[in-house]
């Protein structure tokens, strides 16, 4: 476990800013407790400083996880957000998509969202924008990229793709191996 370098922090925040915009400040500032980012085996964790300090007592190869997993750095140096961080993203998300109950299941199996399945969508959503997907009872199901802007959606046919699935909570079951040591 180690701190993130300035370069790594920048990459992480750039990615998160695509979801929550200027609210990335809230992740660091707006809380009674101080939070920090830690890197362990290529994965970035978001943890309270108390937890992070306690975790220093555990040897590197023994430490499975701490706090909550934000995502991981790929070999190419890019940063991928994991589904584990969806609760924080949902709380601060700028652009949201709500699904109809009948298309919920399809999304949770890893499929993209068609127009027929969209109940509601944040206005002025641009194209290729990171969006967080909810069901009707405001439970975050995952996130993805908007394939069309909210204006284009109105003209789209019911089988057109609206949101491209990047991660959904169904992957907790589908890719169980992937989440070992990921804060579960």
């Amino acid at each position: 476990m180690r701190n993130l370098t300035e370069e790594e922090l920048r990459v992480v925040f750039e990615k998160l800013a695509k979801f929550i915009g200027k609210d990335i400040k809230a992740l660091v500032e707006d809380s009674n407790e101080n939070y920090c980012f830690r890197l362990q085996k290529d994965r970035v964790y978001y943890a309270r400083e108390v937890v992070a300090a306690a975790a220093t007592n555990i040897a590197r190869h023994n430490l499975a996880s701490l706090g909550i997993c934000v995502g991981k750095f790929t070999h190419g140096g890019r940063f991928q957000v994991h589904i584990t961080f969806v609760t924080y993203l949902a709380r601060l998300a700028k652009y949201k998509v709500w699904l109809k109950p009948q298309s919920e299941m399809s999304f949770l199996y890893g499929n993209n969202v068609l127009k027929g399945g969209v109940a509601r969508m944040t206005e002025n959503t641009p194209k290729n924008q990171q969006v967080v997907v909810f069901n009707q009872s405001e439970i975050p199901l995952g996130f993805g990229v908007s394939a069309r802007s909210s204006l284009e959606v109105q003209q789209a046919s019911s089988t057109d793709l609206i949101v491209l699935n990047q991660a959904d909570v169904g992957s907790y079951l589908r890719d169980e191996d992937h989440f070992v040591g990921c804060g579960l």
């Binding site: 300035e6 920048r10 992480v12 925040f13 800013a17 990335i24 660091v28 500032e29 101080n34 980012f37």
Partner: peptide, 18 residues
Amino acid sequence: IIPNGVERERTFQAVNDV
């Protein structure tokens, strides 16, 4: 592991840069 104060400063710096 760098001290908390330094880390917080670094984090804010990165946020502001972004």
